[in-house]
Simulated scan of single mutants.
Amino acid sequence: MGQKVHPLGLRLGITQKHRSVWFSKFDNYPRLILEDKNIRSYIFKKYSKAHIIDVLIKRYRTTQNIETKEPIDLVEVSINTALPSKILNRKNTKESLTELKSILENICYKERLNKNLPKVEIILNVFKVEDIYSEASVLADYLIQQLEERVPFRSALKKTLNRTRFTKLKGIKIQISGRLNGAEIARTEWVRKGRVPLQTLRADINYSYKTAKTIYGILGIKVWLFKGEKT
């Protein structure tokens, strides 16, 4: 039986970069990984309609607060999104950034409470992604929206493929698993357009896995995009 490998993890260091960039002592790794997970979970859950593509986290060396002289850990959080207006308030961008920054700092503070660890200071960046239909997570979100509105899955697949007509993608593959159109027996259906060479390590593959919650149950959605080969 063929074993499945995550297409992004397989290409780390070749065409993909790490989403978390930091180095620490061995004893601190579990705590910092949990902090990263909690930060990402909050952002993806809070701004589920913002079509967030990824959240990059960088940690810097422990420094001192200029005013209080207390040690602090600097953490840079960069959010790449298709709709930054869903995160930032157009009338008061600074206030919405400050509010999100304080919430993320409190999330980290809970993990460090009673452990004599330095406080965290968040540096927050929000970037807009221009070519949104060249991102697998955006296409997966669009397909989820169609399926949850009870659009037949074949029509939803065609509409999703049509969204990529004017992009520079070399290939796309979409797979849906579950009780499709309310069928009693779950099955898997997929559609492909162009080339998607998952065995080629130098292939620039963009991948996303999400779930759609329908009245018949949960549908698993996988999207692979092939953007070309990197030399």
Rank of each mutant, 00 (worst) to 15 (best):
111 E>T: 08
168 K>M: 08
61 R>A: 10
131 D>G: 04
4 K>I: 02
230 K>E: 00
180 L>R: 00
94 K>W: 07
157 L>H: 00
93 T>M: 13
154 R>N: 11
181 N>Y: 12
191 V>P: 13
122 I>A: 00
202 R>Y: 08
7 P>G: 01
12 L>N: 07
121 E>Y: 12
5 V>S: 14
49 K>S: 13
209 Y>H: 08
18 H>G: 05
177 S>R: 00
39 I>R: 00
122 I>Y: 01
74 L>V: 14
85 S>P: 01
141 D>N: 12
92 N>T: 10
137 S>Y: 07
45 K>T: 13
161 L>W: 03
190 W>A: 10
156 A>G: 13
53 I>D: 03
131 D>R: 14
23 F>M: 02
145 Q>G: 01
34 L>T: 05
103 I>M: 10
12 L>A: 10
44 F>V: 02
28 N>D: 15
212 A>H: 05
94 K>G: 08
155 S>N: 11
217 G>K: 08
76 E>S: 09
97 L>E: 12
47 Y>I: 03
227 K>Y: 09
20 S>M: 11
85 S>K: 11
117 L>P: 05
77 V>Y: 03
189 E>Q: 08
91 K>H: 15
125 N>D: 03
19 R>A: 09
176 I>L: 11
136 A>D: 05
99 E>T: 11
80 N>F: 15
53 I>L: 05
157 L>I: 02
14 I>S: 13
4 K>R: 09
134 S>C: 07
209 Y>N: 09
78 S>G: 05
75 V>D: 01
46 K>L: 04
35 E>T: 05
198 L>H: 01
222 K>A: 04
149 E>R: 15
143 L>Q: 01
146 Q>T: 10
94 K>E: 12
175 Q>A: 14
14 I>W: 12
133 Y>W: 12
34 L>Y: 06
98 T>C: 07
136 A>G: 04
124 L>T: 03
196 V>N: 01
229 E>Y: 07
77 V>L: 08
82 A>M: 09
179 R>F: 13
175 Q>W: 06
72 I>V: 14
158 K>R: 09
181 N>R: 05
69 K>T: 12
185 I>N: 10
70 E>A: 06
141 D>I: 04
24 S>D: 13
207 Y>W: 08
5 V>T: 06
